[in-house]
């Protein structure tokens, strides 16, 4: 498991855990970013990412991206 902020453009990853306290898990959850969901990394900035889940695209800043732990899909 690695933080989403370490992925690369074009990667397909599966969400394994969402770290941290507060509302992050609920905020991501209502957008469909739940444990077990598959994400495609559309664009990777320095540490921020744009991911696609089905038809939706979400931008995550460096802070949020480092809280989402993912596993690479081969």
């Amino acid at each position: 498991m690695v933080p989403l902020s370490l992925s690369q453009t074009g990667d397909t990853v599966v969400v394994r855990a969402i770290q941290g306290t507060g509302h992050l898990a609920i905020i991501l959850g209502q957008l469909g970013m739940i444990i077990g969901i598959k994400l495609t990394v559309v664009e990777k900035g320095k540490e921020s990412v744009i991911v696609r889940i089905g038809e939706s695209r979400y931008a995550l800043g460096a802070g949020a991206a480092s809280m989402v732990l993912v596993e690479f899909q081969v």
């Binding site: 905020i27 991501l28 957008l31 038809e55 979400y58 931008a59 995550l60 800043g61 802070g63 949020a64």
Partner: peptide
């Protein structure tokens, strides 16, 4: 405190 994490939908 730090700014809250940036999460935003990119509309089609």
């Amino acid at each position: 405190d730090e700014p809250s994490p940036f999460i935003m939908e990119l509309p089609p």
